[in-house]
Simulated scan of single mutants.
Amino acid sequence: MSVNIGGKSSIAKGKKSPPTPPARNGRRRSPTRVNPALYLFPLPAVVIIMFFLVLPTLQAFQYALTDWNGFSAAFNYVGLDNFVRAFTNDSLFANAMANNLKFMLVVVIAQTAFSLMLGLLLTKNSRSSVALRAIFFFPTILSSVSVAFIWKFIYDPNFGLANSVLGAIGLQGLQGSYLGDNAQALYWVAVTQVWFHAGQMMVVYVAGLQAIPKELYEAAEMDGAGKWERFKTITWPFVAPATAIVVAYTTIQSFKAFDLILGIAGNPPKQSLDILSTRIYSTFANSDFGYAAAQSIIFMAMIAFVTWLQRRLLRLTQKEA
């Protein structure tokens, strides 16, 4: 019931009045202003990043164009000669690059597959699964030097654990020299790298797998989908983001296996175990700082390109799935 008072309609008591429309000429409330002092909080981090990352990177580009030996105040600009030398006139650098690409390929494939397998087996939060996760994750908390010396003992051809176990179970024919075999040494180090970090990547996969709704598996099982079909259509697409993280991180790890290689193979490592990071270190040690800076830039560009290429391939794989 409404009553007209002075030409205006008043709603009877007990009924809600309609919302008042905003004034046409009214101004919107201005957003809350941020205190300018808040912008000072990230300043220390920005200064540290600039001083320890940005400026050294810019200096590396400068030194890469010189013949600086690292000690003398004088140096000459040589243009792109250091880059041309790296790609056309340095067999040691070419060998290290080839070794690093082989090492990266083996480690990325093996570590991604092994960590995914562990994640699938240990997804449930049962006591046994949690305990096994802790066991597989344990090597990750060890230092690279400790891992290198442990596996150096395992691979020792005379009194190492590997040959001792093979001899004890009557498999003397499988005994080998491991790191002493130039054709196989790099792959045995790759085994060490996978053992070292697979548990860490397993945790990433467990987190991704536990986020998959169980209803999807139940519906697929009711439709008669087998294990492979459920993995292909549900598991793999859902863990694709985790796989991208694992592949990118594993790639960077395989390029930065400097301390592991030096701990196992010594300094300097032999050519069959020489990778880009150890080659750059040797160039710096020989007081060829300009050339080492150029090698470092090539090294950085390779990591960026390989990581980008892997992400593209993963996206194509996801679309096909």
Rank of each mutant, 00 (worst) to 15 (best):
G70M: 02
G70E: 03
F71P: 00
F71G: 02
S72F: 00
S72L: 01
A73F: 11
A73G: 14
A74L: 12
A74C: 08
A74G: 13
F75V: 02
N76D: 15
N76M: 10
N76H: 15
Y77V: 04
Y77K: 12
Y77R: 13
V78Y: 13
V78C: 11
F83K: 04
V84Q: 14
V84N: 14
R85C: 09
F87T: 12
T88C: 07
T88A: 13
N89A: 15
S91N: 12
L92R: 14
L92N: 13
F93N: 02
A94G: 09
M97N: 11
A98H: 10
A98K: 15
A98C: 09
N100K: 01
N100W: 01
L101Y: 09
K102Y: 12
L105E: 02
V106T: 08
V106S: 06
V106K: 03
V108A: 03
I109P: 03
A110W: 00
Q111R: 10
T112D: 02
L116A: 07
M117G: 14
G119T: 07
G119V: 05
L120C: 13
L121P: 03
L122R: 06
T123K: 14
K124T: 04
K124M: 08
N125M: 06
S128M: 14
S128Q: 12
S129R: 04
A131G: 05
A131P: 01
L132D: 04
L132I: 06
R133C: 04
I135W: 07
I135M: 12
F136S: 02
F136N: 03
F137C: 07
F137L: 13
F138H: 05
F138P: 02
P139Q: 01
T140K: 13
I141Y: 07
S143D: 01
V145R: 07
V147N: 11
A148V: 05
I150R: 11
W151E: 11
W151P: 08
W151L: 08
F153N: 12
F153G: 10
I154E: 06
I154N: 11
Y155L: 07
Y155A: 10
Y155G: 07
P157F: 05
F159M: 13
L161E: 03
A162N: 12
A162L: 15
N163I: 00
L166T: 00
G167F: 05
I169S: 01
G170W: 07
L171H: 11
Q172Y: 14
Q172M: 13
Q172F: 13
L174C: 05
S177W: 09
Y178M: 07
Y178C: 06
L179W: 10
D181A: 11
A183L: 13
Q184I: 09
L186I: 05
V191L: 15
V191M: 15
T192P: 10
T192D: 09
Q193G: 08
